[in-house]
Design a protein around this nucleic acid. Structure first.
Lengths: 342, 342
DNA sequence: CGCTCAAAATGAGACGTCTCAATTGCGGAT
DNA sequence: ATCCGCAATTGAGACGTCTCATTTTGAGCG
């Protein structure tokens, strides 16, 4: 490995000057600069990042922890983050916590010494212990993405959950639907709470009463979702003409349940879901979705993180909420039965 | 940050002894060990990994580069690799080359100084330049996974492509099918070539002629695949009773094409694909697949990599091929028309 | 009591970089 | 000719760890 010292010898300048040329921190004469750059070329010098990190206490690396890389939503966020990181010459390390809070904590601990900042998509559904929160606070800055943890007050970037849900529900309202059911994931997740809030708000704004029998919640497990749909759909009294799902996993399973119960979209029930379904364009008819700006979320999160790295503790906490967009496809097509309902 | 020097002061031993206790490289008296361990506990010492790396020239970290994290196949491999890495106390860095060979090369360069070994799933479809191959050879050891690059002679771990394809085709043969079409991805990929070879072998072994009009190849683009299926299926003379797809992307698109052309599985055509389709258990009927041992591939690749890290250059190149398994579901159900064909 | 020898402990030095106080060089002003 | 001031350069030292040659310790033995 070629070192700066060797460059110095070849270029006949001091080691300090070589370092100054390379890091560009101090003014260097044109002559010296040229000699050093020549030497770099001749010896094919490459700086030793480890040594540099030891000295500067910077790694020029960011880390991102996600709950499950096999859910397509997360790689999309990773992509946005990676792009933003590379724009600034940073390197991004990806870790998968496998939906385990403990693993998540472990991974953050492992990242601690290797990165200058962390993007965290928590597994969610629990409150952070004071101890773990303190550990976070004492390490490199953390920006929470998508899912906002309880008990952790950091910068965050996520979609405007309630606004996004409202968008989807308003679309159904505009098609004439009045009995719109909602199926959410676990309400221990703040996102899910907010999305439910958006649903309520949309209905209230439209002057409708929010009927409790139209609000369904389930875990992320197929069986659970199926059971909830079955109960909700076969209930006679107040049958929905439309269903809104608050996330992709739930939406996919719900859709499957509808089909297996003999329902079709949009004919027997209109359907809108949060997130692009995994095999989105495979279904006929195609599914209308509230689409999150995944790439922007990742990208923006890195920008917020850089801000924080620079202004360490200075600025107040920033909570960014990005807007979702509605992509209208077939599953919500206006339909005579739906439009009849009043 | 607590340093070993501070530990030494508190424990009233030398810095060298502290280091010996921590790294366990030399024998240390029980007494000294206890004092040091106490000090570690009291001061909450955590070793500085950067400094350690600088000194030892080891990072205790591995890297994996994959073409596209949004294809579920790759995160599964990552998971197996990560597990194996953690078993040995190593850390795994994940990078997404976004299907670009240039990015791939960049990423390997970036990893160079940060990891002790690299797992590479190349984007494929091109030959590695001698220059890039040389760069690889001069860096940390590389193990190629899944896709084997041309022009790069490294250890590798992947599925037994031809055997796996044979497995799928033999299944169709055993159901009585005789006119079995195959649709592959780009034949610039070695995997695809091998899988096609497996198909040929299965037919030959069964004493059947391989009819050229039954061999279809396409890029990974939907339109392309659709066109190929259309041409193959609407061709009158030699219409297949079964279709075998050699990878998940192609399989998914082919299936969609079948449906849009009015075919159904297994009624009008039997269907078997490589890999679990993204929304596998969503389709009715469910799809029969040749399933790769993704987790094992990742896991095993890390083991091979460790071997190489330890025996640096000593052992001969190892080319591991893991067997696939056939998961029979509905799409290949025996069917009267199929069984009639002779 | 002194000697030997192995085990244990020591501490200087190196890994490659950056930083900073100190020094040098040089043109221009006095 | 001398001095000043600024820019450029220098080189020692530190970051925290591990290594290794050297020294110290102490148990065993004559």
């Amino acid at each position: 490995m070629v070192t700066q010292r060797e460059l110095a010898k070849l270029a006949r300048v001091s080691a300090g000057t070589v370092s100054n040329v390379i890091s560009g921190s101090t003014r260097v004469s044109e002559d010296a600069r040229r000699k050093v750059l020549d030497a770099i070329r001749v010896l094919k010098y490459q700086p030793n990042l480890i040594a540099r990190s030891l000295r500067t206490r910077r790694t020029h690396t960011l880390g991102i922890v996600v709950p499950d890389l096999t859910i397509p939503f997360f790689p999309k966020i990773v992509r946005g983050a990676e792009y933003a990181a590379r724009e600034r010459g940073y390197f991004l390390i990806v870790l998968d916590s496998q939906r385990s809070h403990d693993t998540e904590i472990d991974m953050i601990a492992l990242l601690r010494q290797r990165v200058d900042g962390i993007l965290l998509v928590t597994t969610g559904g629990y409150k952070w212990s004071a101890e773990n929160a303190a550990a976070i606070a004492s390490g490199p800055p953390v920006v929470c993405v998508d899912r906002l943890p309880e008990g952790l007050n950091t910068d965050s970037v996520c979609v405007d959950d309630s606004g996004a849900a409202k968008l989807g529900v308003q679309h159904l309202l505009s098609l004439g639907h009045r009995r719109i059911a909602i199926i959410t994931g676990p309400l221990t997740l703040r996102n899910e709470q907010e999305r439910l809030r958006g649903y309520r708000r949309a209905l209230k704004d439209a002057g409708l009463r929010v009927h409790p029998s139209l609000i369904w919640s389930a875990s992320f497990e197929m069986e659970d979702i199926q059971a909830v749909c079955q109960r909700g759909l076969l209930r006679q009294k107040y049958k929905p003409t439309a269903l809104f799902a608050t996330n992709g996993v739930t939406g996919l399973c719900a859709l499957k349940s509808l089909y297996s119960l003999g329902f079709t979209t949009p004919d027997s029930i209109a359907f809108v879901t949060f997130d692009e379904l995994i095999a989105e364009d495979f279904f006929q008819p195609r599914i209308t979705s509230v689409v999150q700006p995944t790439y922007e979320i990742g990208h923006r999160a890195v920008e917020v993180l850089f801000d924080r790295i620079v202004h360490r503790g200075a600025t107040s906490v920033s909570k960014v909420r990005l807007p979702a967009t509605l992509v209208v496809r077939d599953s919500s097509r206006t339909h005579k039965r739906a439009s009849i309902v009043k």
